[in-house]
């Protein structure tokens, strides 16, 4: 993956990449089928879906049923990709995902939109801070949190062909591109975006860009930070986590999700299980629900800004 990050906002919306990649997948592979729960409009897939009723199925506002239908189709040889907003793609239909998909061995790809604070003006009812945690609990699952356009396209091309329950956590609006389009980001491998000997910032999703901004601030203070885009939350790139812990001895893990059960927990598990020594701090949501507001407001309110990463980095360095 060629890194092109300069902090500027991209021109396209992530949903455009989702739609275009989906259409390409469907055209190339007769086993790919797309299901949605009345939110095609949010991903821009509606007009195309209407023209392809045999490959794009709107299940209505019935997420549990959508999961079951997708699983039934998987049992008949299809590779379903289903989408709805994150909370409805996880909490709302969890037993169906756990049993009809995971336990029953029906391989499906789930796309959870508007992760965490990206739900913005839809507010607390639509704001998932727990979805990654729930998917992590499904044996054999794979979880990806999308960083930008290139990661989205790359993982969409890989995940339908992996076994198990696969989850893509993705915003639908514009993103700040980190990578040049067209590269392949292998599932399960973190990407080192910059190298520094003093501290490691491991981030996913929208927190990757915040981590890169934080690294600039730290650099100005004479602190050299390694920044890792851990876009695959599960299976975690444990080897890279341990290497970073050994190299820098201090770490900040940043995610747009609850501190419990997501990337923070996964990294902590990896460190503890392997007896790694590092001063670790978390930048994540903790013991609170979502609320309504702009993404900028919510990042401030939830402590998910570059400034929060800098503050936690200083704390971790002090403990090193």
């Amino acid at each position: 993956m060629k890194i092109i990050y300069d902090g500027s906002m991209g021109e396209k919306e992530l949903r455009n990449i989702f739609r275009d990649t989906l259409i390409d997948l469907v055209e190339k592979d007769p086993t790919i089928v797309y299901l949605d729960a009345d939110l095609m409009g949010c991903m821009g897939t509606g007009p195309w879906a209407k023209q392809h009723p045999d490959r794009a199925i709107n299940c209505g506002i019935a997420e549990a049923d959508m999961v079951g239908i997708a699983c039934g189709m998987a049992a008949e040889g299809y590779r379903p990709i289903m989408h709805t907003f994150g909370p409805f793609a996880s909490r709302r239909c969890y037993d169906q995902l756990f049993l009809s998909a995971g336990y029953a061995g029906n391989d499906v790809t789930v796309v959870g939109g508007d992760p965490g604070v990206c739900a913005a003006l839809n507010g607390g009812t639509h704001m998932p801070f727990e979805d990654t945690a729930l998917f992590r609990l499904i044996p054999g699952s794979t979880i990806v949190e999308v960083t930008d356009y290139a990661i989205l396209e790359s993982v969409m091309r890989q995940l339908p062909y992996l076994p198990g329950v696969k989850y893509i956590r993705v915003d639908r609006k514009k993103a700040k591109p980190v990578y040049e389009m067209g590269g392949e980001a292998p599932i399960g491998k973190g990407i080192v975006l910059r190298e520094g000997a003093d501290i490691t910032i491991i981030a996913s999703g929208i927190m990757v860009q915040e981590a890169l901004e934080a690294a600039k601030v730290l650099e100005a203070e004479g602190i050299e930070a390694t920044v890792v885009d851990m876009f695959t939350v599960k299976p975690l790139d444990t080897e890279l986590v341990l290497q970073c812990a050994e190299k820098t001895g201090a770490m900040v893990v940043a995610e747009n999700h609850n501190r419990i059960g997501g990337l923070c927990s996964a990294v902590a598990d990896a460190l503890v299980e392997n007896g790694a020594k590092a001063a670790v701090e978390f930048v994540a949501v903790f013991e609170r629900y979502g609320e309504v507001g702009t993404r900028e407001y919510l990042q401030e309110a939830c402590g998910l800004t570059a400034g929060d990463i800098v503050a936690k980095a200083r704390k971790a360095l002090a403990r090193k």
Binding site: I57, A64, D65, V67, G68, I69, A70, C71, G72, M73, A74, A75, E76, Q96, S100, A104, N106
Partner: peptide, 8 residues
């Protein structure tokens, strides 16, 4: 729901 998916 599984049966519906299978039938579809």
């Amino acid at each position: 729901s599984l049966a519906v998916g299978s039938a579809l």
